[in-house]
Amino acid sequence: MLLQIHCSLNEDRSQLKNRRENDEQNKLPFGGSGFLLSWNEDEGKLLFVRDEKKITALAKPCFPWSEPFEKISIRDLESNELTFVTSVNDLEAESKQALLSALKEACFYFAVVKITAIEEDFELRTWSVETEQGSRRFQTKLNAWPSQVGENRYIVRDVNKDLYVIENTLELDTKSQKLFWPLSD
């Protein structure tokens, strides 16, 4: 996840320029409204500031898997849309940083870097994995297959609805790949 944010921030400048041009042509909804986003680190709170009025807000990416940093609905705590951000890159520096922090929370998942075991138990499949966040053991139902959300990208949802993402199965070590192979598409 962190890696992805990093990559997104360092994406090709020309692509960025093109997108900005496109967005300007599309007349960004926040263009003239003059809002600001800020992130309260202590409370982990996103604030939407407009006309000196601060509203606690939530960032809701419309396409969390395919475009997590684009097409983001900023909503209040009652889930009313405050504004819509087409891309984080269209925001000025402070708002962009605030939104990225909020997205880091909203889009958090366990990023699997290694699979150490997949064992079948009674009506359950137990996974032992190494994630970017640390070691984790979790269970899925036997008929709950990993969902493919990209060429070699998979999401595994456990019995508690926690999400585990394998960004690229080909980048896993050989043992992990072998363990995952029967469950892949």
Binding site: G44, E105, D162
Partner: peptide, 24 residues
């Protein structure tokens, strides 16, 4: 969030007295 739940315990001003993040 996708795989995180945040619990914010607020005072009467709406300020967070304690914020806790957990997986589902």
């Amino acid at each position: 969030g996708l795989s995180v739940k945040k619990y914010v315990f607020e005072d009467n001003e709406g300020d967070a007295l304690m914020t806790i993040k957990v997986s589902y």
